[in-house]
Amino acid sequence: MTPLRSELPRTGSADVAALRAQISTSHLARGPALSFGLSELDSRLDGGGLDGAALHEVAAATATLTDDAAATLFIAGIAARFAGKHHLTVLWALTKFDLYAPALEQVGLGPGKLLYAQARKDSEVLAVAEDALRDGSLACVVAEVKGADRTATRRLQLAASDSGTPILLYRRHRSKEKCPLGQPSAAMTRWRIGCLPSARLTLPGVGRGHWSVELVRQRNGNPFSLELEACDDTGRLALPAATGHRAPVQAGTASFAA
Score class of each variant (00 low, 15 high):
M1T: 14
R208L: 04
C179N: 02
L73C: 10
E130T: 13
E227M: 04
C140D: 05
E124D: 14
T202K: 14
D42T: 10
P111K: 06
R172G: 04
T151M: 05
A160P: 07
L196R: 15
G48Q: 08
R154T: 13
Q183N: 03
T2V: 14
V16G: 01
S175K: 07
T253K: 02
A17L: 05
I78P: 00
S225H: 01
A230W: 02
A76M: 09
R190H: 06
R171G: 02
A139W: 08
A152T: 07
H86P: 02
F97A: 14
G207Q: 06
Q22Y: 00
R236Q: 12
L158A: 14
E177D: 11
L239D: 01
K178I: 14
L239P: 02
R190S: 12
W92Q: 13
I167N: 02
K146R: 03
S225F: 00
E130A: 10
K178V: 15
L196N: 12
L28W: 00
G252R: 11
Y100G: 01
S185I: 04
T25K: 02
R236T: 10
T243R: 06
T62Q: 04
T89F: 09
K121N: 13
E7N: 07
V107P: 03
A69H: 02
D149S: 11
R155C: 06
P111N: 03
V142C: 09
D162R: 12
Q218E: 11
V141P: 08
Y116F: 15
S163L: 12
N220E: 06
L114W: 13
H245M: 04
A69S: 04
D149M: 07
D68Q: 14
A80G: 11
E229R: 04
A14P: 01
L201N: 12
G108K: 11
T11H: 10
S137L: 09
S39K: 10
P248W: 06
G164T: 08
H86F: 15
Q157T: 03
A61G: 01
R192Q: 01
P111C: 03
V206A: 13
L115I: 07
Q22P: 00
T253I: 06
P180S: 13
L99S: 09
L201S: 13
L104V: 10
L38M: 15
R192T: 00
V107Q: 07
Y100T: 02
L4H: 11
V107C: 11
A251N: 07
